[in-house]
């Protein structure tokens, strides 16, 4: 990852969503992006130049654009029409983004479009986030890594976020994953945890 005086940046053409520039690099704001927050907390997994990424919950494509700056290719899956319009605008300028308009919980629909990926990144607001992750693990290479941004409040508003995390970890280990690291994204994001896991 590229740091300039403690500021996380990515190399690429600016002006995607009004992000600030620093020495010709795009500043990646941890308060806006959960992935940037994860790196600010001292990460365990870095993006590599030749990585192919499957990005679930691409939304407006702000974080996607930074991931695309670092990696070879990003398959960005988003379901809602309004954010998809913004994502298309971002993808039009970055040739290594493949925008897929589909429901991440139904991978059988977009499976014919995909290739094996090095990183499965997931930031979806769905109560069944863990189920979606395990259904999409089929796209991971054997050496692949999954990075989940767990929105504990989307999974269950009533439970304590800590309990939701513990339960999610247990469910992940039951399916196809081995947990490597978990951390809360405070102070950047409330009630969000990052879970890094490898394929079994």
């Amino acid at each position: 990852m590229i740091w300039i005086d403690g500021v996380l940046v990515s190399e690429g053409k600016g002006g995607v969503y009004g992000e600030k520039m620093l020495r010709n690099c795009r500043i990646w704001d941890p308060y806006r992006s959960k992935l940037a927050a994860y790196y600010h907390k001292g990460c365990g997994h870095e993006l590599r130049k030749d990585d192919v990424v499957l990005y679930l919950g691409a939304a407006n494509g702000t974080t996607v654009s930074h991931v695309a700056d670092y990696t070879e290719c990003v398959y960005a899956v988003e379901f809602a029409p309004r954010p998809m319009q913004d994502l298309l605008a971002v993808a039009a300028k970055r040739k290594n983004i493949v925008p897929i308009m589909a429901d991440a919980s139904r991978p059988e629909w977009y499976a014919p479009l995909l290739e094996p990926v090095d990183l499965l990144y997931m930031d979806v607001a769905d109560p069944d986030q863990i189920g979606i992750a395990s259904r999409n693990s089929v796209f991971l290479k054997q050496s692949g890594i999954a990075l989940l941004m767990l929105k504990t409040r989307s999974i269950d508003v009533r439970s304590d976020p800590g309990d939701v995390l513990a339960e999610s970890i247990a469910r992940l280990e039951e399916s196809d994953f081995v947990i490597q690291e978990t951390m809360w994204l405070l102070p950047y994001h409330q009630d969000h945890a990052a879970i890094l896991c490898a394929k079994k």
């Binding site: 029409p81 998809m84 298309l88 993808a91 039009a92 040739k95 983004i97 493949v98 925008p99 897929i100 308009m101 479009l113």
Partner: peptide, 11 residues
Amino acid sequence: RNLCFFIAEAK
């Protein structure tokens, strides 16, 4: 990408 743009724009 051409295919994916086509699908997304149609949807």
